[in-house]
Computed example of a mutant assay.
Amino acid sequence: MAPQKLKVTKVLSKKDRKKIADPLIAYNVARFGESGREKLAIRLRGDDGEINGGLVGYTARDWLYIEMLFIPEEMRGKGLAGTLLQMAEDEAKRRGCIGAFIDTMSPDALGVYRRYGYETIGSLGEFAGGHTFTWLKKRFQPSEA
Rank of each mutant, 00 (worst) to 15 (best):
A2R: 11
A2F: 03
P3G: 08
P3T: 08
P3M: 08
P3Q: 08
Q4L: 08
K5H: 06
L6H: 07
L6F: 04
K7A: 13
T9Q: 04
T9C: 08
T9P: 06
T9D: 07
K10F: 06
V11A: 12
V11K: 13
L12K: 09
S13W: 00
S13M: 05
S13H: 02
S13T: 12
K14Y: 06
K14E: 13
K15V: 15
D16P: 03
R17N: 10
R17L: 15
R17Y: 11
K19Y: 10
I20V: 14
A21N: 14
A21V: 14
D22I: 00
D22R: 07
D22P: 11
L24I: 12
I25D: 14
A26G: 10
A26H: 09
A26W: 05
A26L: 09
A26N: 14
Y27H: 15
Y27T: 13
N28C: 10
V29A: 11
A30D: 14
F32T: 14
E34M: 11
E34S: 15
E34N: 15
E34D: 15
S35K: 05
S35L: 05
S35Q: 10
G36Y: 13
G36E: 10
G36S: 05
G36A: 05
R37H: 12
E38C: 13
E38S: 14
E38V: 13
L40Y: 02
A41H: 14
I42A: 10
I42W: 11
I42N: 10
R43F: 00
L44Y: 04
L44C: 09
R45A: 07
R45L: 10
R45W: 00
G46L: 04
G49S: 05
G49H: 03
G49I: 07
E50K: 15
E50N: 12
I51Y: 00
I51P: 07
I51G: 08
I51D: 14
N52W: 01
G54A: 01
G54N: 04
L55K: 02
G57W: 01
G57H: 01
Y58M: 08
Y58Q: 12
T59P: 05
T59N: 01
A60F: 01
A60V: 03
A60G: 13
A60N: 05
A60M: 03
R61I: 03
D62I: 00
W63P: 03
W63Q: 05
L64A: 11
L64P: 06
Y65D: 04
I66G: 00
I66W: 01
I66E: 02
E67V: 03
M68F: 04
M68E: 14
M68S: 12
L69G: 01
L69R: 02
F70I: 15
F70K: 09
I71Q: 04
I71N: 04
I71T: 02
P72V: 04
P72K: 05
E73D: 11
E73F: 00
E74M: 06
E74Q: 13
M75K: 07
R76Y: 03
R76N: 02
K78C: 09
K78R: 15
